[in-house]
C-alpha cells in the first residue's frame, strides 16, 4: 500500500512517535544556536552556528525527507547538487583569496559614475 516505504508507520500514533522526537531535536538545536550566538567565541561563532545548521538540516533530510529509506537513486540525486556547489565555492575562493591587491574589491574606485541612477525609472 505504501509504495516505497517498507517500514512506514501505519497509524496516527505511530506517525507522531516517528516525527515528534525529530521536532524536539530541532527545537533543542534552535535554542543551542541562539545561546551559542551570544558566547564570545570569535570566528568560531560562525563555525558553531553553521555546524548546528548542518545538524538541523541532517535531521530534516534524513527523517522528514525520508533519505533514511534505502533508495540509492534518491540519495544520489540529493548529493549531486552539494558536490557541484563545492566545486563552485572552491574555485571561486581560489580566485578571491589569491587575487593581487589592485584588483581586490574596495582598492580601486571607478573613475566615472553613471549620469543617471539605474534604479526604478529605467525598469522595463
Amino acid at each position: 500500500m505504501t509504495g516505497l516505504g517498507e517500514e512506514r508507520p501505519a497509524s496516527t500514533a505511530g506517525i507522531w512517535r516517528a516525527t515528534l522526537p525529530v521536532w524536539a531535536g530541532l527545537m533543542v538545536l534552535l535554542v543551542a544556536t541562539l545561546v551559542g550566538a551570544y558566547l564570545e567565541l570569535g570566528r568560531f561563532n560562525l563555525v558553531l552556528s553553521l555546524g548546528i545548521a548542518v545538524a538541523k538540516a541532517a535531521l530534516v533530510v534524513v527523517f522528514f525527507m525520508q533519505l533514511k529509506r534505502p533508495d540509492p537513486l534518491l540519495r544520489l540525486a540529493a548529493c549531486a547538487g552539494l558536490v557541484f556547489l563545492a566545486f563552485m565555492f572552491t574555485l571561486t575562493y581560489a580566485d578571491v583569496l589569491t587575487r593581487a591587491p589592485p584588483t581586490q574589491p574596495g582598492t580601486v574606485m571607478p573613475r566615472s559614475i553613471p549620469d543617471r541612477p539605474a534604479a526604478g525609472q529605467r525598469a522595463f
Partner: peptide
C-alpha cells in the same frame, strides 16, 4: 541591483564585479 538600486556588485559600496563574472 538595477531595478531597486540595492548594491550587490557595486564597486563604490564594496561590491566585486569580477564575482559576477565567476557566477
Amino acid at each position: 541591483e538595477r531595478a531597486f538600486g540595492i548594491p550587490i556588485f557595486d564597486p563604490l559600496r564594496g561590491g566585486d564585479p569580477i564575482l559576477f563574472q565567476h557566477l
